[in-house]
Structure formats: C-alpha cells, structure tokens
Nucleic acid binder design. Sequence first.
RNA 1: GGCGGCGUACCCAAGUGGCUAAGGGAGAGGUCUGCAAAACCUUUAUGCAGCGGUUCAAAUCCGCUCGCCGCCUCCA
Length: 484
Amino acid sequence: MKIYNTLTGKKEEFTPVEPGMVKMYACGVTVYDHCHIGHARSAVVFDVMRRHMKYKGYVFTYVRNFTDIDDKIINRAKQEGISWKEVAEKYTDSYYRDMDSLGVGRADIEPKATEHIAEIIAIVRGLVEKGYAYEADGSVYFEVSRFADYGKLSKRDLDDMMAGARVEVNERKRNPMDFALWKASREGEPSWDSPWGPGRPGWHIECSAMSLRHLGETFDIHGGGADLIFPHHENEIAQTEAFTGKPFVKYWVHNGFITVDKEKMSKSLGNFFTIQEIIGKFDAEVVRFFLLSTHYRSPIEFSDEQLREAETSIDRYYTTVIRIRDFLGADQTKEKAAADEKALEELLDKFRDRFTEAMDDDFNTALAIGIIFETIRTLNKYMDGRPSGRKAVTLVTRADALLRETGTVLNIFNRTPEEWYRALMSVKQIGLTEDDIREQIRLRQAAREARDWAAADRIRKELEEQGIILEDKKIGTGWKVRVP
RNA sequence: GGCGGCGUACCCAAGUGGCUAAGGGAGAGGUCUGCAAAACCUUUAUGCAGCGGUUCAAAUCCGCUCGCCGCCUCCA
C-alpha cells in the first residue's frame, strides 16, 4: 500500500521496519479543555488507518499519548480553581466520552507525560552529555544548530527561520530557535526533581520519551495534525535522532484542518465547535461519516449543511439495509431473474478489491465511500427488477455481507436501521414514541382499508409534521425519521 | 518575506498521463404508487481557475498569471 510521507513529500510504498508489523504513534491531546471537531478529525483518521492496516493483516501497535502537564493545564487549573491533576483528569474523561461516541477505539498504549518523567530526564541528560543541549538557570535547551538535519521535515532552512523569527526574547537561549527540553519551575508550580533542579518537561520531549519506550528507537508511522509539523515534530526528530543516533520514524503522516469560512478552526480564533456541541445536533455516526467523506490530507469546510448531507447519505445506506431485509424476508420460491443481475454480480466480484485498493492508496476513504454508494445504487436497481429465487437471495446476501465488511474498516454503517432511527429521534427531539407511531400506522391502515384516503393522508401528514415519514410497502407500512 | 498546499458541475467531493471526468446533495422531468415516500431512470462539466508549453495523448507533467488557504507563535 501507499502512504504519503511528509518527510519526503511523496506518496511512498509502505514497507514496515519489521515485516508484518506496524508501529504507529499519534500525538494525542493536551487535556486542558473539551475537544473540538478538529481533534475529532485527527482521532478518526488515525483510527481508520489502524483499522485498515489491521484488516490488511498487520500486527498493529498503536500508541497515542496524553499531554497531562503543560502551561495551558496549569493556567486552566488556576482559572477553575482546581489542581492541575484534576484538570487533566476532567478533560481526559471528556476526551474518552467524545471518542467513544465517535467510534474511535482506544489505542493499545495510552501513555501520559507525567508517567515518563524518569525517561525524559534520562534523554535530556543524554543530550547534554552529547553536547546537543545546554543548561541555563535550571532549564535545559536543545541547541538546534548542533543538529545538521534540523528542518528536514518542515522543509525549513535554519538561517531563513532565524531571519524571520518571531520568537520570544529569551536571553538564556544561545539561539532563538533553540527549544526547551526541561523547564525550571517557578514557586508554586508543579515540579519534579531533576539534575538541574525542580522543573517539568518541555512539550516536545515527552513524545520522544514515550515513543522510545513503547515503540523503540525506529518505528513506522508517526502522525498528527498538520500544525504539528513545525515545531513539534521537527523538534522531536532533532532530539530523538540526536539522542539515539538512529532514524526516528519512517513515515510521517499529517491530517489536514477543519475550516470555518475557509479559515482554520482553532482555539485562538475562537471559531471552533466542540464535539459535544455537534453531537447534540447530529448523530456521532454523521460526524464520523462527514470526516471520512474527504481525503484526510485535504481541508474540510465545516458547516451544518455538510453535516446534513452526511446525514442524508447515511440514511440512504440504512434505507437500503431495510430494503435488503424486506427482500430476504419475502417469498423466494419462484425463480425469477432480473435484468440487472449481471451488472450487480460483476460489481460484487470486484467490490472487495476496489475497496481495498482505494484504502491502500493513502487511505482514500472518500473513494471507498463512493464505491459503497455505487454498489448501493446497483443493488437497489437490481431489487427494483423484482427478482426472486435462490440466485437472487445469494446475490443480495452477498451484497449485504460485503457492505457490512466495510464497516469494520471505516467503523460506520454497522448499526441496525432501528438503532439509526432511534438515534435520529433522539437527536432531532421527536416527540413521539415508537408505540405512538405504530398506533398511528394502525389507525391509518384501517382508514386505508376503508378507502378513506382523506383520513389516511391526514394521519400521514400529521406524522410528517412531527418528523416521521411513512412508507407504504407490500408487506406493510414502514416508518423513518425525516432527514435532513 | 521564507516554505508548503489548494482552485474539478448549482453545492460537497474522488480522479494526478490514455476507455463515456467516481460518488453524495440540490434542481428539473419521468417510471412506480390510491396519493405519497423510498427506489430507479433521464437531465445539470466537449470540459477540470486563466494563459502558454512538453507529449501521439494532460484535469493529471512544466512555466507564468490570478484567486484562496496553511505553517513560520500555542494549536489536531
């Protein structure tokens, strides 16, 4: 399979360090606030990468960290009047709630910065001993000019950066681009003992320490949002490779941003929506589908309109699932072929290969979803031809199984239509119970049998006004929640 | 200023050298239906920001122009 590597700027054939095994590290979150949809995108994208590679048969180890000590956490603690540990716990819980609802699985290892202080100190000490870092007033800085490859990931030249540097004045640093490995703590701030006095880790060093411990000196994939390329990942490369003397990561992958009015969604601009806000208005599966309907490296414009379209698409999927079920539940004694049998058969024959090929091409989820909907249309068309008999049952069953299989990788489309409609009823705040609806359908059926079309239509219209759509079918009347 | 990316139909979005430019949404018309809904069919890009060039062949490669965005500071 092919993966776009930020380091080389090219799509490359993926070859793991150890055959059959993949080790991936993705930068998680700093737990100082609720997650927004941008965090969701990153998490969902890496979740799908893992699912696909496991589907391909790789033995996969996924490490995703929590940054649980940092200036933002300390500030937040002051604001909320609680301890920094309580802040970290509170927002870690919030993170898990969000991820669970979005269908993002837990990583195999979820390390925290504060659990790796000893490793961090060991690396910092090693870097000082090797001459890559220096101590100043209880802090330790990495000296970027000592690392020849500095800038190789973000394609930056050290001299250019210094020329246009917008960095804070800090006369303790030998070079404005030098970055903190260890920060001396001020009175009253959380701190750990170190050879340089009480302090806490710099931001970048924790990822080096945690990946080194859990994945080794050289591993396959390291990912995160595109905004982490510089300085975070650039600095990770510098300090880790300086420390180990070995290549750090083979493939660097970065997801694109979510935008609002074409601008990057970010905390500082204030144009963000938290995951909790969004899943109050749309089902989490809708959000996940929305995030996967664009290639992970492209920007996605966030809007209610986009989410409504995603909702409509998912509804189309579950509507087809109902049709499949109705079809398989119908009388199949008569052997009757439909005109489109061959088209469906051919599509199903190629389905798995096409789907895998799309995902193998740098995780092209948008194309993969396209293939799913192409199959849905062909399948519906086939069923429209009213075929029956063993051959028809075989074909439809096979289509059903193949469509379900994609759910394993994308982790969408694997609920029942009932679960989907229940979720919609909740999110759209439909003021009816399923029993209410069934009762109305019964009343309407009686009117229909009496050929009282006016009464029947009135009931249907009343339900529609409350967001419930009726569908008269041969086997009876079905209902669904109106979308969008 | 440096570096990087993007510009495909009314909207979203795949496609990065060669079969009629995926898929979804929206609109219009139609089939089906008591009427609907759903589904399906037809329809909306001789053209992929513009202009040049390379090539037998380009949305796809190269150059220039225009427009938009990102990173260079915490950031997914």
